[in-house]
Amino acid sequence: MILTYIENWEGKFKKLSYELVSYSYELAKKLNTKVIALSIGNVNNDELTLLAKYGAHKIITVKNQQLNILDNKLFAEVITNVAQKNEATCIILANNTTGKAIAPRLSVKLQAGLVAGVESIPTNTQPFTIRKKVYTGKAYNNVIVKTPKKILTLFQNSFGLVENPQEANIENLDISTAESEIKLIEVNKVTGKILLQDAEIVVSAGRGLKAPENWGIVEDLAKILNAATACSRPVSDEGWRPHSEHVGQTGKIIAPNLYFALGISGAIQHLGGVSSSKCIVAVNTDKDAPIFEAADYGIIGDVRKVIPELIVAIKQTKK
């Protein structure tokens, strides 16, 4: 069995959830087995059923008060329990903060080799061989998993969505755990903004903007494109933007369909975080900026002039 852990956000799934099921289905086909999707937390049956559309043969839901906030230790116990009951040989999680927090613990508990950050299904099943990114996207490494059980975390927006409708049963599983030793004091959430990790389009700006007060045009561009905003390291280090928006080797690693690098020279550390983007547009005054080597489309020019013109041009196209 392939077991895939499907996180929820206030009871809802998102594109990433369906991508995980799509990937698991493809892997199950290759290994000649079936997919179980596991949800932990309060998700209603209508939402759970959506997982069947992308290839889940069975859906398990665990609801437990102790699991309302992420406690890596307890979540790993629950997933291990389900994996053992269902004789799962592969466990698939997202390569996001949650997946990265739980997968290593599962690896130890199940004595299963972990490959974090895969983008495709294994190239070989005997021995189980899969490719992963290393050196922050600067290279790929082929990895052989020696253990009978395997754990993989999948990069968001790498596999895509594939529909494979199944007739899946929903099984309510009662698993009790110890009391969590992690207590929530408060949550701070930005509302109304598109999340960087989920965005199809990311508009990112760097020092070429010259001053923080020029940031408004970046927001305007993001708004008409329905995009998330991001920034280069100097911009977050100087406090123009929060650290959570820094993309690059030591910030967030993203792979949107379209990435705008505006006034970003494209140092190797920056490229490491964005090189998986499907299409990159660069605007920079320096024609020799390394960003143009990574970009698909480029404009040599001042972002403070180009961005407003771009906004006008996009508005016209939309009409």
Partner: peptide
């Protein structure tokens, strides 16, 4: 966390 922070 996605889109914010938790204090714990």
């Amino acid at each position: 966390i996605d889109g914010g922070t938790e204090l714990l």
